[in-house]
Design a protein around this nucleic acid. Structure first.
Lengths: 229, 229
DNA sequence: TTTTGTTAGTGTTAAAGTAACACCAACCTA
DNA sequence: TAGGTTGGTGTTACTTTAACACTAACAAAA
């Protein structure tokens, strides 16, 4: 079976930059390609867009198929269209980035055919296609966006301590933050909810567990509230 | 001539939201379609991406062909891929937004075949396809971005008065700004350069003309400077 | 049971930045 | 030369930010 068009068309693909947080390290999930081109080399999970799905849906499907991830934060990043970005033929790729609660997920990794592995951002292996550019673009976006939208919570467990939250920002932004000032600021925003529970299984004073209150955040945004770290 | 592929492919298009500033009104350029579908209805300038050009290049080409605009600020906005966004067939569109010095340009308008007309943002006619969504997305982006990147200058003549600059921000952001505070802040940033020239042809005290110093801005950014209105 | 180690949790102050506010100057035109 | 219009300028109260250190709680080890 083949498909005919009056004018030539680029192939349309999606690629996903998947971020996870692991004990103070920001990580990216990469897969080892099991098909040419670049067979055996590291790349972002991704694939071609089907006719019956939007690019968002294609990105979620590829995520599921190639990494086993589902129901994660996913947002369109940028569309890459350089003529030579794929050696086979003209491929335009709509890139996405995803944020994953790595703590919950860890065990399920490497589900599928291709090898899917978490790498520290600072230790990513050489990537094929224009994927280094895509990763860099995604990291820049993440750093910028985490400051003015409460997306960082997507990298933490649903319930978290203030120290975990602070460490997440320090890791993503790659800079230290003052503990007291951070707590004052984040608590005064009124978007965190005490769960009433405490941390357990730690060899020191247990910390209170909080949860991001999305509803409250949205009603506050409507009233002009501006999130900022 | 026809082109065959093993798998079906969406058509790939670009669409441009072109903003201009005219005496305190933010305007958008629209064209009246001279072909089906939606013949005679208003739409964004745009068209299909060719095999020998990136989407950026396609957007610039369409801008030139359909509106006569060239060498303008142009930035990728978002990729729209809803299955039903085009009634003919599956079309994925990479949307761009452009900022135009309308004052310089005015005369050249309506160059090409199709009718190209500036509309006030608040008086846009009904648009076809998903173009209302694209325009809204572009306007949101413009409002957000103008606050943290000095792109607003692209809407003004190269040389401008502080009042023009302030009015630009007030128009784009749709809120009043205090004159003295604005001047203090913008001048203290050190990104404006006095041209030494004065406004002329006005029936009142002439104002100093300034110019955006892009080089200075870039060197300051490298040193950690953060633009913010 | 005491000590040790580790993180939780908490306030104050100086400095910087922001927001609110009004009048005279300069120039053109009638 | 009087009137109209915009240009240009400082001060102050208030808010926000940045810098900074100690005690509390708990588990584990001695």
């Amino acid at each position: 079976m083949s498909f005919q068009y009056e004018f030539p068309r680029p192939a349309l693909a999606v690629d996903c930059v998947i971020f996870g947080l692991d004990e103070g390290d920001l990580k990216v999930m990469l897969i080892r390609r099991d098909l040419p081109p670049f067979e055996g080399r590291w790349a972002l999970p991704g694939g071609f867009v089907r006719m019956d799905e939007t690019t968002d849906e294609a990105a979620r499907r590829e995520l599921r198929e190639e990494t086993g991830l589902d129901h994660v934060f996913l947002e369109q990043l940028y569309t890459f269209s350089d003529l030579q970005r794929d050696p086979r033929e003209r491929v335009v790729s709509v890139a996405y980035y995803a944020l994953v609660r790595l703590t919950n997920f860890k065990v399920h990794a490497t589900t599928d055919a291709a090898e899917a592995v978490w790498f520290k951002m600072c230790e990513t292996p050489p990537l094929c296609f224009d994927h280094p550019l895509i990763v860099e673009t995604a990291y820049d976006r993440l750093k910028a966006k985490v400051c003015y939208q409460p997306i960082g919570f997507e990298l933490l467990p649903k319930n978290f301590t203030l120290t975990q939250l602070q460490k997440m920002y320090e890791t993503v932004l790659a800079r230290p933050i003052d503990k007291r000032n951070f707590r004052k600021k984040i608590l005064s925003m009124g978007i965190l909810q005490e769960t009433g529970e405490m941390q357990s299984g730690v060899a020191h004073r247990a910390a209170r567990l909080y949860r991001f209150n999305e509803k409250k955040y949205h009603t506050m945004v409507k009233k002009g509230f501006h999130f900022e770290i």
